[in-house]
Structure formats: C-alpha cells, structure tokens
C-alpha cells in the first residue's frame, strides 16, 4: 500500500508534473516566477490549497455527488469549493502573514481559477483514488507545482542579468525557458 502511495507521490511530482507535463496552472507559473521569494510563497499557497481542495472535493464527490447521481455537477461544485477555500486562505494569510499577502498580490485570488487546482480534484475522481490516495496525489501535484515554480524563478533570476537580445527579453525568453524545462522534465517519463 505504502509503495503504491509513494509511486502516486513520485508520479504526481515528476512524471505528471502539473505545470511542465500537463500544462496546467501556467498563469502563476509565468506571472509569479520572476522572484524566488514570491515563488516560494505562491508555491506553498498552491500546495496548501491543492491538498485541502483534493480532500474536500473527494468528500463532496463521495458523500454528496455520487449518492445522488449528481456527478455532472462535479466541475461546478469543485469550483465552488476551491473558490471558497482560496477566499478562506486569503483571509488567513492577510491576517497572519501580511508580507506574504503583499508578495502574492493578485495571484492569490487567481488560484481560484487556477486550472491546476481544479485539475487535481477532477483527476483524483477520474483515476478512482481513495481519500488517502487523493490527498497524496494532491500533495504531490502541489509540490510538483512548487518545484516547477522554484526552478523557473531560479532560472529567471539569472536571466535578469544575462545578455538576452532585446527582442527576446521578457515574455519570449520566459516561454522558451519554460519549454526547455518541460522537455527536460519529459526525461522523467522513463521512471514510470
């Protein structure tokens, strides 16, 4: 059992990395990855919301939607859950860690519509995971996102001082970097 959980965890982080393999959650990936400290904050916030959302949506799915044959309301109710969770997390962060709140800025509300968070909830259901497996998969997904964001921020901090041709500065070089990073991550596919 624990070997199964470990493989779910590893797969979620490396092989099926949400950002670099499944191309979900690109907005914060590009938007918040220009500074390492805000990337860390964003990564942790997303991981936190993902685990919470994974667990809560699993409960919604199995205790409410499935018994009443209302699976078609999945997307709707999951978005409701995620939006509420993000609002809640935002309030808590604003009260407890104002500096993190400042650093995250507009990106925290953006987690509401972050497809990576919704994606992890829907994938948990599609893969037929149990509660613990869902939680582990969500944690792995979140950490994978955190990891990708961290790598990207590290690279972009170096790009700041690199001699990039004028036409390639800003978004273009970021997209190319993201593409190369995704190709590198493709190497993990052999692990499966």
């Amino acid at each position: 059992m624990s070997a199964g959980l470990l493989s779910i965890f590893i797969i979620a982080i490396f092989i099926e990395n949400f950002v670099l393999n499944q191309i979900l959650g690109i907005c914060p990936f590009v938007g918040v990855s220009n500074r390492l400290d805000s990337a860390v904050g964003m990564g942790l916030a997303v991981t936190f919301v993902m685990v919470l959302a994974g667990v809560v949506t699993w409960m919604i799915q199995h205790f409410f939607l499935a018994p009443f044959q209302l699976e078609y309301l999945q997307t709707l109710s999951f978005i409701l859950v995620i939006a509420s969770l993000v609002q809640f997390v935002e309030m808590v962060i604003r009260k407890t860690v104002p500096t993190l709140y400042q650093a995250l800025g507009v990106y925290l509300p953006l987690i509401t519509t972050n497809c990576a968070v919704l994606g992890v909830a829907l994938l948990n259901v599609r893969k037929g995971y149990g509660l613990v497996e869902s939680a582990v998969n969500s944690l792995g997904g979140g950490l994978g996102f955190f990891f990708a964001l961290l790598l990207m921020a590290g690279i972009r901090e170096r790009l700041e001082v690199a001699d990039v041709p004028v036409a390639m500065r800003g978004a273009p070089i970021t997209f190319i970097t993201a593409g190369l990073l995704a190709i590198a991550f493709y190497g993990f596919a052999g692990l499966a």
């Binding site: 109710s77 509420s84 809640f88």
Partner: peptide, 16 residues
C-alpha cells in the same frame, strides 16, 4: 445540494 453547499461555504466565509 448546490444550494446547501453554497450556504455552508458562505457561512464559513462570513464567519472567517
């Protein structure tokens, strides 16, 4: 169901 979910989350948020 959706109404109940919405109400519960709304209540939690307003308390928070």
């Amino acid at each position: 169901l959706m109404g109940a979910l919405g109400f519960v989350f709304g209540a939690i948020l307003s308390y928070a």
